[in-house]
């Protein structure tokens, strides 16, 4: 397995703000890699470093085997970029803008462009100043997705799109993956990441807090179980890894850590299972738990961080 993006210990400060604080990121060639994090976590800063628009203060970063700052121009022949905040030249039309970027990259394919304009239902004859946010986003999407670049950097690319266009976007990304190309997808939309991504990196406050396949990450979370048993459900509270237990007559509802799922089910079968429903952990829960817990423990963490500083 070759690596398209490898970054370790990236640090970037803006004045007194530490935007990246030792970020690690590894994206394998041919995968769609989800890049998740709350606002201000450093996703866009990372992508701007990968594009050679910013220079990291310290840390190593390698992109398609090159240095994104030093080899920016050569590397960009193999990269397409879709920004989250789309700024266009007001007097140029959407079609002109798309063609400009295609030609600057050197891979303008009119057939592919027309196909995407059609699929995204974009009117290419309107001046950029008259486009809505969603339509500006479509211009950037068509410009980026119509390229044959081997690596696509997408920074929250669908924040202004409606659900129908979201479906089109997901189809196009799947086609790109089928062609063996690599995608780094920064996103807020967990359903989108779940639908598209092979692997995910979650970052917070400029640091990678979690990285792995969706299956890997599910191990870190809990499955939600509702069961009705022959004998009254007892003893569940004594099992390791069971949380938020609610028992009402013969019905039990609880969440269980994925590592302890097997033991919990064994216990239930001994009680005689009448009905059972389980809900697999969603990325949403993973995300909320990760940040929810950390937010809840924020003062504690702040204390720890201060302690770290004295080591």
């Amino acid at each position: 397995m070759t690596t398209a993006i490898r970054a370790s210990g990236l640090v970037k400060t803006f004045g007194s703000t530490r935007a990246l604080d030792g970020l690690d990121l590894s994206v394998a060639t041919g995968e769609v890699h989800g890049f998740l994090g709350p606002n201000g976590a450093g996703k866009t800063t990372t992508i701007r470093i990968l594009l050679g628009l910013l220079r990291a203060d310290s840390g190593d970063v390698e992109l398609l085997g090159g240095d994104p700052w030093r080899d920016a121009v050569e590397l960009h022949q193999h990269i397409a970029y879709v920004p989250g905040d789309v700024n266009l030249w007001p007097k140029l039309t959407g079609g002109e803008t798309i063609d400009l970027f295609g030609r600057l990259r050197g891979d303008l394919d009119p057939r592919r462009r027309d196909e995407l304009i059609e699929r995204f239902e974009l009117d290419p004859t309107k001046r950029a100043r008259t486009y809505s946010k969603g339509n500006r986003q479509k211009v950037a999407l068509v410009a980026g997705l119509s390229s044959d670049a081997e690596l696509l950097l997408l920074d929250e690319p669908t924040s202004g799109l409606d659900p129908l266009m979201e479906v089109v976007f997901q189809d196009v990304v799947r086609e790109i993956r089928a062609e063996g190309r690599t995608v780094l997808l920064s996103s807020h939309i967990l359903a989108q990441v779940e639908a598209l991504c092979d692997r995910v990196s979650i970052i917070r406050a400029g640091r990678t807090v979690e990285s792995g396949t969706l299956t890997d990450l599910r191990h870190l979370t809990r499955t939600s179980i509702t069961a009705e048993t022959v004998r009254a459900p007892s003893g569940l509270d004594k099992l390791a890894g069971v949380h938020d237990l609610q028992v009402q007559d013969s019905r039990a509802h609880f969440d269980v850590d994925t590592d302890h799922l097997d033991a919990a089910l064994r216990h239930l079968t001994e009680l005689g299972v009448r009905s059972l429903s389980s809900q697999p952990p969603t990325l949403e829960e993973l995300f909320l738990r990760h940040y929810g817990d950390e937010l809840a423990h924020e003062p504690e963490r702040a204390g720890l961080a201060a302690g770290d500083g004295h080591e």
Binding site: T93, E96, L104
Partner: peptide, 23 residues
């Protein structure tokens, strides 16, 4: 109402200097 413009980029929009001239 604003008038529609060209759907495809003209010859100017092939190089940075063409874009600068257009702008």
């Amino acid at each position: 109402p604003p008038r529609p413009g060209p759907a495809v980029g003209g010859r100017l929009l092939t190089r940075p200097v063409g874009l600068a001239l257009r702008l």
